[in-house]
Each structure stands twice: as C-alpha cells, then as structure tokens.
Amino acid sequence: MMVHLDRLRAVVRAAASLTRRLPLVSLLLAVLLLLPPLRAFGEATMVRQMLVQMPLIVLAGWCAGRAWVRAPEGSRAARLRSFADSFNRAGATGIVIASFTMILWMLPRSLDAARLSFGIDALKFASLAFGLGLPVAWSWVRCPPIARAVIHVEVIATLARFGWGFAAADERLCASYLQGDQERAGMLLVAAALAWAVVVAWRPLFGGLGGGKPAAKADRRDGAIA
C-alpha cells in the first residue's frame, strides 16, 4: 500500500515539475510550430491557422506569462514584474494590448500576410505569444470582476462577428485560402463564440443551484463571473 502511495506521489511530483516547466515546453512548442514543415502544416488551411495554430501560440505565451506572474519573490523576473505591475493597474494596459493583438491577427489581410511571408509570420508568433497570451496571463488576475465580464462579452461578440463575416462573405477574403475553408472557419468561430458563452455563463447562472452555501461560494477570490 505504502509503495503505491509513494509511486503516486512521485507521479504527482513529476507532473508538478512538468507544470513548472510548462512555459519552457510551450515556448519550445511555439518555436517548433514556426519551423517550415510544421508551419506549412499549421497554415495549410484557414481553419488550422485560426483555430489550431494561433490558439497554440497564445497558449504558449499564456504559460510564459503564468510563470512570470508566479515567479518566486526576490527573483529578477519578480522584480521586473512588480515594476511592470505599476503600469498595469487592474490589468488595463495588458488588456488593451491583448485586444489589439487579437483583432489584428483575425483580419483576413493579416492571415494572408502571415501565410505568405516568413518575416510577418515570425512577427505573428512573437506578438501572439507576447502580445496576447502573456499579457492575458499577466493582467487577467488583476482585472476586476466587472471588467472580466465585459471582456468575456466582447470576446464572444468578436468571435461571432469575425465568424459571421467569414461565413457570409461571398468572395474569398484571403488569397491564400479557399472559399469553403473560409466558410468552415467562420462557422467554427461562431461555434467557438457559443461554446465560450455557455462556459462562462454557466456558473453565474446556475452556480449555486446545486446546493452548498451560496455566500461562501461567492466569496471566492475569482468571483463567479471569472
């Protein structure tokens, strides 16, 4: 019995250490994704570029940001962060940066540019990781719950707007992608908006219905909207 427990602990420890390395792993992943064969694969269709490759890059940046936020007290990263924090009260600056980055890379022209030019694609990788994923990880925890709710609604609306636009366009908006691909990407973005809406609305709507002490639940730091 004891042996089993030990083994379990070891697995948990290994998993934990992997989580600590997650930023490294994810940045490595981002660089890998930029390498020609994987880059070509990830950008071969609009669906892949918008719904697989780009989210992965954002995730990589987010992991890096998460690590930065959790950097141990006194470390250089932590000192830098606490200086940067003073420019990012309530996460305002980070969210502004992230909003522009998100919208810019959903424009058809940017999708084309990234597909056609390696330089711009490298810029895309860097900005999605450090201009979207990282600022979100850094700023979200500092965002007041009201701002989070408004951001959620805006993200849902933005996904739906772009999705609808791509699905409704009667011509190819990207020179690099076919019409059917564009429509598919559009519908998937709309689906993503719906899924996002359900996921973020579920807890505020029904969170306390299953029993438990509502007041205690509501006092959690994240707030039910988060």
Partner: peptide, 16 residues
C-alpha cells in the same frame, strides 16, 4: 500606479 497605468494604457491604445 494609477497615473502610470493611465499613461501606459493610452500609449498602448495609441500604438494599437
């Protein structure tokens, strides 16, 4: 922090 954030946000907005 407030003043810096306001400044930084405006710079970010302008840059964006």
């Amino acid at each position: 922090g407030m003043a810096r954030t306001l400044g930084a946000s405006l710079v970010a907005l302008a840059a964006g």
